[in-house]
Design a binder for these strands. Structure first.
Lengths: 169, 169
DNA sequence: GACTGATTAGTCAACACCGACTATAATAAA
DNA sequence: TTTATTATAGTCGGTGTTGACTAATCAGTC
């Protein structure tokens, strides 16, 4: 769906797509080069995108991917589904939380304080994501992350507070 | 790490482990039966757990997994790392957000209202998770989810509000 | 004149994970 | 008495993802 979306506005070639993902959307999505190529192939087989080869000067040839009408329909379908969906998240970090009572209160607290620092740093990172980009929506997504990071921070502070109450210095 | 943690308190056999994951931890983690068996094998090969076979009556034999001292060390190492770590999350849902301007305001709003309902429902679900379980930590993790779901709800309402402002009825 | 880094394109083997399936024995329900 | 369910154990092929690798051309730097 992401890849279809990137082709909705206009056709792009593979390198460009991967550039945008890596340099502009790195905060929001995690898709590697090889994966992107594989998916583009799949989309092409399914008839959602078409490929043409271009050559500019003597440079290596580019493969230009364009979305087909069928691909556009698919995109809008996926878009609606995606906006309605709520995929229940699983957090690797919760696994640690489940066993937090296996550490001493001090050790646990120390670990969580480290984590708190990382959350703060992450918040700073997101704040500094530039505001131009592919579309308005990207900023909304960045905002989403910021919002959730703030919530995470609040929660962490709460947990740390409870730890302190259980075992004050 | 999860599996090591489940064996820290006492040995368990495979079926039991999968039962607990499926029935008691389904809200928090997502590991399928076949995966669990594979991981248990890997842990066994790595020397972090040992297996013995038991037979009770004429029932199918059980494989009982116990954690080894090396496994315990590994567990505590992983636990510390896990508690400090902050893995930056990627949300499939953000991909839709990135392209939200491709839908009409009404359609977008409708989709997000659906989603809001699902968030509410999810919150109810988590509220009703029973409070006994494997350890204190499980409740902390459930609480974490609740906290983040509330944040998600708030944010969604905010986005919907902005949509309405852009295109009031 | 040599070398580095960007631009463009992939490939491919390895890995993790999962869904669907297979077994068997006891126990409960019809 | 047959049938369904629970307890117990996996296996295995298919899918998606990735890291590491290969190629070639051009622009710029030392």
């Amino acid at each position: 769906m992401l890849l279809l979306g990137m082709l909705i506005a206009h056709s792009r070639h593979g390198y460009q797509i991967n550039e945008i993902i890596e340099h502009n959307l790195g905060y929001l999505i995690d898709i590697k080069k090889s994966t992107a190529y594989t998916i583009l192939d799949r989309l092409s087989e399914a008839g959602f995108v078409s490929m043409t080869t271009e050559q500019e000067g003597n440079r290596p040839p580019r493969k230009v991917y364009s979305i087909t009408p069928s691909g556009e329909r698919q995109f809008y379908q996926l878009l609606r589904e995606n906006l309605e969906m709520l995929d229940l998240q699983y957090f690797e970090e919760d696994i640690g939380m489940m066993f937090i009572d296996h550490l001493s209160t001090e050790d646990a607290k120390e670990a969580l304080l480290h984590k708190l620092q990382k959350v703060d740093q992450q918040i700073e990172n997101y704040k500094q994501v530039p505001h131009h980009e592919i579309g308005v929506g990207v900023n909304i997504a960045v905002n989403h992350h910021l919002h959730l990071l703030h919530a995470e921070k609040e929660w962490l502070k709460q947990v740390i507070g409870e730890l302190s109450r259980h075992n004050p210095i």
